[in-house]
């Protein structure tokens, strides 16, 4: 496969995954707004999300102080920030357009239609329709993933699509956790409130029923974190994402990718054989930060080994 084609497939799936998870993060705030919380805590919650996404300074430059409506508009609709939800949908489509001959026409038409229909959503949307918008984004992502799994040949194209999806999902799951841990409302002292706030995160990630089945116990920050990091069988979980990443990278291995494979294997092993308590011994957010750094390293190495090879030719 052409390296450039692999590059577009990888970014197509990363942007799509990012759009879906961004919808979930915003959705969590919509749900939190229904809980009896201090106005102060609501604003701090949005701020925590902006920080964990690395989009806080861009927000401040644009809007100044945090308000729920501006934060929603920025994360969902901002046409000038490449990290906004609409821009992610657009980037997914632009990458798909560059490889429309490699993906199936069903995939292309779905991504294209998502992009065309997204033009009707903007900052003038009334409050009441905003939840439907987030649902729509999740639905389009589900649809696209379904069509991909139902029609795309299981060759390199499929591997690079998966590599993008799982690298992005591992990253996004840790950011959703990080945002909750950074939210001063969620310090674990006020158990009752915490329980409902962490339940909101689970619901936003479509993982609440799974939690009940696995734990049959009250919702606590540490249990939720452990589940989202360590469960090998949870599709949204970091452990699962690393297993998929490792398998797909092994399937496309080439002459220069040995070190990348070693590093992803090493990272995977932490989750496979490590103890949750030891991984987070220096604090959950410290661990999450360090982990995101290692994902960035992997992303850079994947680009060098497969996507934009230079020098060696």
């Amino acid at each position: 496969m052409l390296s450039r084609t692999a590059d577009h497939l990888y970014w197509m799936s990363r942007y799509l995954e990012r759009a879906a998870n961004l919808a979930r993060m915003i959705d969590a705030h919509q749900r939190l707004a229904l809980l009896p919380r201090q106005p102060e805590a609501v604003l701090q919650g949005w701020h925590a999300t902006l920080i964990s996404l690395g989009m806080d300074s861009a927000y401040e430059a644009r809007y100044g102080a945090v308000t729920p409506r501006n934060a929603f508009n920025f994360l969902a609709f901002d046409r000038d920030h490449p990290g906004s939800l609409l821009q992610c949908l657009r980037s997914a489509r632009e990458n798909a357009r560059a490889v429309r001959g490699t993906i199936t026409s069903d995939m292309w038409e779905t991504l294209n239609e998502t992009y065309l229909d997204s033009a009707s959503f903007n900052t003038s949307m009334p409050e009441s329709a905003r939840g439907d918008f987030l649902e729509w984004v999740k639905y389009r992502a589900h649809l696209t993933r379904g069509i991909t799994s139902g029609t795309l040949l299981r060759d390199e194209a499929s591997h690079f699509t998966h590599i993008g999806t799982f690298l992005e999902r591992a990253d996004n799951t840790t950011r959703m956790l990080e945002a909750r841990w950074r939210d001063p409302g969620g310090r674990g002292e006020r158990l009752l409130e915490d329980a409902s706030e962490w339940a909101v995160l689970l619901r936003a990630m479509s993982a609440f029923e799974v939690y009940r089945r696995l734990y049959r116990d009250s919702v606590t920050p540490l249990r939720v974190t452990q589940m989202l990091l360590m469960r090998q069988d949870l599709p949204q979980g970091v452990h699962r994402c690393l297993a998929e990443l490792q398998a797909n990278l092994a399937a496309v291995a080439n002459e220069q990718s040995a070190e990348t494979l070693r590093r992803v294997g090493e990272l995977h092993a932490q989750f496979q054989f490590g103890r949750f308590e030891e991984l987070c011994a220096e604090g959950v957010t410290t661990f999450l930060d360090r982990f995101q750094g290692r994902l960035r390293d992997l992303g850079g190495r994947i680009a060098n080994d497969f996507l934009v090879p230079s020098g060696t030719y």
Partner: peptide
């Protein structure tokens, strides 16, 4: 995506 080496044309792929 293409380059010429020894008067022959090649494309850059994920496998070389």
């Amino acid at each position: 995506d293409l380059f010429v080496r020894d008067a022959a044309l090649y494309m850059r792929t994920t496998r070389g």
